[in-house]
């Protein structure tokens, strides 16, 4: 199992379109991918759009990303990349 902290830095937060982007990316991997608010108030399956929306991760929210499975390294890298590039919405 791999873990990493990620920060929501894009202007609109983890809003619906960003969430859809995340879910599409996560769904291409076999591994279990979870995002948990560091205050422990919510946790989400990154392959489920409704669950990701329920995180209500606004700009500045810190999330714990956990990935477990055969392709966990690749999945972790891909998801982190999405957060880093602000879901491809803004110039970095």
């Amino acid at each position: 199992m791999l873990e990493r902290r990620v920060l929501v830095t894009n202007r609109l937060g983890l809003h619906a379109r960003a969430a859809a982007h995340l879910v599409r990316t996560a769904s291409t991997f076999k591994s279990n991918i979870r995002l948990t608010r560091t205050d422990g108030s919510a946790t989400a399956d990154a392959k489920s759009i409704l669950s990701v929306l329920l995180l209500a991760a606004a700009r500045g929210t810190e999330l714990l990303l956990t990935v477990e499975g055969k392709d966990e390294a690749a999945a972790l890298a891909a998801v982190c990349e999405l957060f880093e590039c602000k879901f491809g919405e803004e110039r970095v």
């Binding site: 609109l12 937060g13 606004a58 700009r59 500045g60 929210t61």
Partner: peptide, 15 residues
């Protein structure tokens, strides 16, 4: 959901 994010952002120091 967007409304929820805005409210959270206003309340949050991180942002």
């Amino acid at each position: 959901h967007t409304e929820l994010l805005r409210a959270a952002e206003r309340a949050d120091v991180g942002a």
